[in-house]
């Protein structure tokens, strides 16, 4: 599983807004790539970002194995036809070119996850999206991240309780209804508590926003992002 790992690489020290921008710009340029040299270029950037973040390629492949499996099915299933000649090469190649663009995007986003704690993404959201939507989304992301382990424990205890009463022998229909109802009910109870707790701490529309500061390090990465966007736009407009 890929998660944030504290460190002091160059990528760790970039501002999260910079890293988000370059990710989106890279994805944009990746979707316009189609020739072999362009694809190779994407892989160079993708692998380079992993290198800079000091993240092993193997760890990324393992974390995304299901995605990679579905991608690998692309050319295989594209090649199959019902009827002679049963296998055709051309659609497989089209598919291969298409899926090859996704892998470098996975690499770049893995580097982001590895180097960026959730609270920095939250800060980036609050500092980028203005006003109340930004505040709600930022705080919402932080709270959701906080409550995932709590609800995971709820799921475990509800499942064990059902099992302890021989609920396992019931039909799928009954089991899933009971489990879902109990979980939603617990989640709603927790939301009541959370609402009170937020208010007790003066939850406000205009808090002090988390610290974020661009530095000189961010400049080349922003230039790179702009270059990606320019390349993509030039390609899209057919210039």
């Amino acid at each position: 599983m890929l998660t944030y790992t504290p460190g002091s690489t160059l990528v760790h020290r970039l501002d999260p807004r910079t890293k988000l921008a370059v990710q989106f710009a890279f994805a944009l340029v990746a979707f316009t790539a189609s020739t072999a040299p362009q694809l190779i270029g994407l892989f160079v950037v993708g692998l380079g970002s992993l290198r800079l973040a000091q993240l092993a390629v193997r760890a990324v492949l393992r974390a995304y194995w299901v995605v990679l499996l579905i991608l690998a099915l692309g050319p295989v299933l594209a090649a199959v036809t019902l009827g002679p000649p049963w296998l055709r090469l051309d659609p497989a190649l089209v598919s291969l070119r298409s899926i090859a663009r996704i892998v470098p995007i996975l690499f770049v986003s893995a580097a982001y996850i590895h180097t960026t704690p959730i609270r920095e993404t939250r800060a980036a959201i609050q500092r980028t999206i203005p006003g109340r939507p930004g505040q709600l989304l930022g705080v919402g992301v932080a709270l959701t991240f906080r409550y995932v382990p709590v609800l995971r424990a709820d799921l475990r205890s509800v499942r064990d309780a059902i099992r302890a009463r021989n609920g396992d022998t019931r039909s799928l229909w009954e089991r899933s209804q009971r489990l879902t109802v109990l979980l939603v009910d617990r989640a709603l109870r927790r939301s009541d508590q959370l609402a009170i707790a937020l208010q007790a701490r003066c939850f406000a529309w205009n808090p002090t926003l988390p610290r974020l500061q661009f530095s000189r390090r961010d400049v080349p990465v922003w230039l790179l992002s702009i270059a990606f966007v320019v390349v993509a736009v030039v390609d899209l407009l057919g210039l």
């Binding site: 959730i118 707790a197 007790a200 003066c202």
Partner: peptide, 20 residues
């Protein structure tokens, strides 16, 4: 059920942040 931050520091800072 009353924590609003994932880490100790984030949780304790939440109130003072809201005070601006």
């Amino acid at each position: 059920d009353g924590f609003v931050g994932a880490t100790i520091g984030a949780d304790v800072a939440f109130g003072p942040e809201n005070l601006g």
